[in-house]
Computed example of a mutant assay.
Amino acid sequence: MHTMWKGSISFGLVNIPVKMFAATEEKDIHFRMLHKTLHAPIKYVKTCEQCEGEVPVSDIVKGYEYEPGHYVIVEEDELKAITPHTRKAIEIMDFVDIKEIDPIYFNKTYFLSPNETGDKAYVLLQSAMQKTGKIAIAKITIRSKQNLACVRVYENALVMETLYYPDEVREVKQVPGLPDAASTEVNEKELTMAEQLIEQLSGPFNPAAYEDEYRKQLQDLIQQKIDGKEVRHVAEAPRARVVDLMEALQASIEESKTKKATAKRAPAKRKKVKASASG
Score class of each variant (00 low, 15 high):
D119Y: 08
D167T: 11
T141Q: 14
P166T: 08
E171F: 10
E155D: 13
K131Q: 15
I140N: 07
I140L: 13
I140M: 12
I137Q: 01
K134N: 02
R170M: 11
N115W: 10
K173N: 15
Q130H: 15
T117H: 12
T192F: 11
V172I: 14
K131L: 12
D119G: 15
E188K: 14
V186P: 07
T141P: 10
Q126N: 04
I142R: 08
S144C: 05
R152S: 13
E116A: 13
S144V: 13
N156S: 11
D167E: 14
A136W: 02
P176F: 04
V169P: 05
L112F: 04
E116I: 10
K134A: 01
A136V: 02
L191N: 08
M160A: 13
Q146N: 11
G133D: 07
A182S: 12
T117A: 08
K139C: 06
Q130F: 07
K134Y: 01
Y122N: 08
V175I: 15
A138H: 01
N147Y: 12
Q146L: 14
I140P: 05
G133A: 08
A149H: 02
E185A: 11
Q174P: 13
R143E: 15
P176T: 03
A121N: 06
K134R: 08
V159M: 14
M129K: 01
E168M: 07
Q126L: 09
A149M: 04
D167N: 13
R170C: 13
L148D: 05
S127Q: 14
L163C: 05
P179T: 02
A182I: 06
L191Y: 07
K139V: 12
K189N: 14
M160K: 09
V151W: 00
D119P: 08
L178R: 12
Q130R: 15
P179K: 05
T132A: 04
N187Y: 00
K173R: 10
S183L: 11
E168S: 09
T184E: 10
K145Q: 12
R143F: 08
Y122G: 07
R170E: 15
E185R: 10
P166Q: 07
P176K: 00
K173C: 14
K120L: 10
N156R: 12
G177I: 05
A121G: 03
I137R: 00
M129H: 01
